[in-house]
């Protein structure tokens, strides 16, 4: 026992260093958003925070960042809704509707392969297809693409949660006279709500973060936040402080979600990989 209390201090110190390594770059970047370009170059430790970078990013005539933010929210919410609804139905179907084993295995193997393919490899084909049906530079195209990209993970996650609902409850409902939609709505859905929340949050975050496909399927009017941030780095004269400010703004959803729904994120991330 004494050994354990002895070793507690080094453990705490190591963990604190780890936490610092995670936090310092983030905090330093956010702080850079509040500096002037000169202050950043000088590297003063103490500086007077200014809001002009954020103001510039958000409200200047030449910046589309607010539009990008709105686009990201629209695409994120719509693709998340589409993705989790489709995934929940599929997870239920594959788990409980007695498909032949080969159907289930073939489908799941395909989702795995699909998940491993770099999205960039598909992006051009999607672009071609979107143009063929007139969906290029629309939200619909990007929403469909994001929902599809996240579908494998969402199906695996929801399959785990659906599997955890006891089969007997479903049978009890059948005996009570429930048809498939009743079972889904009144029995399965209420019991997988936490899992559904976890999956939705992760799906939203992944859509928010997605860059490669958004880059290829969007233009000025439909560009999402990551696309906008990437533009900064492409500029000949990089506006470092504004890039920092927009990076800080882009992290807001992540931080919000972490504050209010850490439990669900942990659930989603660990279930998805472990089961």
């Amino acid at each position: 026992m004494s050994r354990r209390t002895h070793s507690a201090l080094p453990v705490h110190i190591t963990l604190a260093i780890g936490a610092a390594l995670v936090l310092v770059p983030i905090i330093w970047t956010v702080a850079a958003g509040f500096r002037t370009q000169i202050s950043l170059l000088m590297g003063d430790v103490l500086f007077t925070p200014i809001g002009s970078n954020f103001a510039e990013v958000l409200w200047s005539k030449t910046s589309d960042f607010l539009l990008n933010y709105r686009n990201s929210i629209i695409v994120g919410i719509a693709s998340t809704l589409l993705c989790v609804v489709v995934a929940t139905l599929a997870a239920f179907s594959l788990n409980r509707m007695r498909w032949p084993a080969w159907t289930v295995h073939l489908f799941l193997a395909w989702t795995m392969i699909f998940h491993m393919i770099p999205p960039v490899a598909l992006a051009s084909a999607w672009f071609t297809m979107a143009r063929a049906v007139g969906l290029e530079n629309t939200f619909t195209g990007l929403i469909l693409a994001h929902a599809t990209l996240n579908l494998p993970m969402a199906i695996w996650l929801m399959a785990v949660f659906v599997r955890d609902v006891p089969k007997e409850l479903e049978e009890a409902a059948i005996m009570d006279g429930a048809d498939t939609p009743h079972i889904l709505w009144h029995v399965i859905l209420p019991l997988i709500t936490p899992g559904l929340a976890a999956t939705s949050i992760l799906t939203f975050i992944f859509s928010w973060n997605e860059f490669a496909v958004a880059l290829t399927l969007t233009m000025k009017q439909t560009a999402t936040v990551p696309v906008a941030i990437a533009k900064f780095a492409q500029d000949f004269e990089i506006q470092y402080t504004q890039m920092a400010a927009s990076a800080a703004l882009a992290m807001v959803p992540a931080i919000l979600v972490l504050l209010v729904a850490q439990r669900y994120i942990v659930k989603g991330l660990t279930q998805g990989a472990v089961k």
Partner: peptide
């Protein structure tokens, strides 16, 4: 109507 071994009551 059927009564199951572990009751199968809807927990919610």
């Amino acid at each position: 109507a059927m009564v199951f071994q572990n009751y199968a009551l809807y927990p919610h």
